[in-house]
């Protein structure tokens, strides 16, 4: 059986919130190392890969592999009943029909309990090759959100260009064009505002802004976001969570004719 308790429901609420508009039905794959999820959007252009390691929970118990087939819209309805600071416990039997969720507000001695019906989901699982990326950019997640939102007003797509001088986001549309350039920036007193560019070779790729703005719904999960790029491979956008847990998005590039 699975039993996994989080000190605050916040993490799980925010993670589900971040992916629910991209993927609808998906399996939460539980085993002794934690709870993982991999799902593609309907158009097979974007992929979500989430890993909540066992260490993120206290306690965490899962004796065998359990796949929880969940409709995220339904899960969102249940999670709406959880206070952000409630403790959240997920429980399931070995061959479960339901996922049991318990929210506890210890200060109020209030316990709420829900059973969410599960479904059988036959999901394609993709092997993601280990990639040595040409450029890895770490930047404030709020800044990335602002850039994608601002450029969305100009165009459907953005070209991300990483060079030794910095990273440039540029868009060209019907009304004109726009760009934002960030240079490496490491303020000692404000680590959350750090912009770091690791570059083995310059790279420029074009992506759909519709998907990138969608990924930015994960912004509340982490102050920093990591963008990993290599020529002609999918972009990886990573929101790192405590203890090595993460929420990653992969996005296939737009390719010139």
């Amino acid at each position: 059986m699975l039993e996994a308790r989080l000190d605050t429901a916040n993490l799980f609420k925010s993670a589900v919130d971040a992916i629910k508009d991209l993927v609808q039905d998906c399996n939460f794959d539980c085993n002794d190392s934690g709870i993982a999820l991999q799902a593609m959007d309907n158009s097979h252009v974007a992929l979500v890969s989430m890993m909540l390691k066992a260490e993120a929970f206290s306690p965490f118990r899962c004796d065998r592999n359990i796949a929880l087939g969940v409709n995220l819209t339904s899960l969102t309805k249940v999670l709406r009943a959880a206070g952000r600071d409630d403790t959240l416990t997920l429980k399931a039997e070995d061959a479960p029909d339901v996922l049991n969720l318990v929210f506890e507000a210890t200060a109020q001695d209030r316990i709420s309990e829900y059973d969410l019906k599960l479904m059988d989901i036959d999901q394609e699982h993709l092997g993601i090759p280990d990639t040595e990326y040409a450029a890895t950019i770490s930047m404030p997640s709020a800044e990335f959100k602002r850039i994608t939102t601002d450029l969305m007003a100009m165009s459907e797509s953005v070209t991300i260009e990483a060079t030794k001088d910095g990273v440039k986001f540029s868009s060209t549309g019907d009304i004109g064009n726009g760009s934002i350039t960030l240079r490496q920036h490491t303020p000692v007193d404000k680590p959350n505002e750090t912009v770091e560019i690791e570059l083995s070779e310059p790279v420029a790729l074009t992506f759909s802004l519709k998907y990138l703005t969608n990924f930015c719904k994960a912004q509340p999960l982490s102050n920093q976001v990591k963008l990993c790029l290599s020529a002609e491979v999918p972009l990886m956008v990573e929101y790192g969570l405590e203890g090595g847990s993460y929420l990653r998005f992969y996005l296939a590039p737009k390719i010139g004719d």
């Binding site: 759909s208 737009k254 390719i255």
Partner: peptide, 14 residues
């Protein structure tokens, strides 16, 4: 013009 690639082109089915 550019066209949107899909992930199947890059990732293999596990």
């Amino acid at each position: 013009g550019s066209r949107q690639a899909t992930l199947g082109k890059f990732f293999t089915q596990a």
